[in-house]
Amino acid sequence: MAAKTALITGGTSGIGKATAELLHSRGYRVMVTGLGDIDDAGLPGDVIAVEADATSLTDIDQAVDQAREHLGSLDLLYLNAGISRPGPIESTDEAAFDALFNINVKGNFFTLQKALPLLNEGASVVFTVGAGEGLGAAMTASKGALLPLVRSLALELAPRRIRVNAVSPGLVNTPAYSKMGISPDTIASWGEGVPLGRVGAPADIAEAVAFLASDGASYITGDNLIVSGGIGVHTRPV
């Protein structure tokens, strides 16, 4: 059987990188997109990394062309690229609002549109959502907008047996927090509020993506798999 293929956006650090490493270890041929230091990402040598800005439709086009060239077709498209602009409504300016929706919604939407011809029958599309309230209304809305998008696309792509799902991480220890200047001790202390008593690791989310990409998830579509250690069980609606 030919090796499965995966394109992971935002795959040079954190959750995307952990997913690239896990799938690579399971025999996938993997390509990731990222910004900036993509050659220093520390990914396995045969994982292809290409630079792509998720706000640029030209970059997206070029990344998908590279995927066609290197991978041929796709068994998994993991739309993980996204940005955080946390903050209360008073301090969310138009530039922050536009950046959130340009990357989290528009960028992911058009990446999928461009990649559609590459998706194999029975392929899996996964979005990273995880729209925790408390991070800021615009940020939560830009991620939350993906859920109806996932459900609509599950219906729209079902005739090709393409499954479309979301993974919603809770608090996960990624480099994004250290970039914001948050100390490791502070991050670890957040675990006290999590029913399982710890913050998540990027590998925890990678495993969920790998499951949704696998044949074992062949009847799962339109779903949002929450990987939060139990955050939200107190309040989450059914």
């Binding site: 219906l155 690791a201 009847y219 339109g222 939060s228 139990g230 069980v233």
Partner: peptide, 16 residues
């Protein structure tokens, strides 16, 4: 790290 989750395995029925 999956806790208290509700995993629908319904071919998308409850999603639409």
């Amino acid at each position: 790290f999956v806790q208290g989750a509700h995993l629908a395995v319904d071919g998308g029925r409850t999603a639409v």
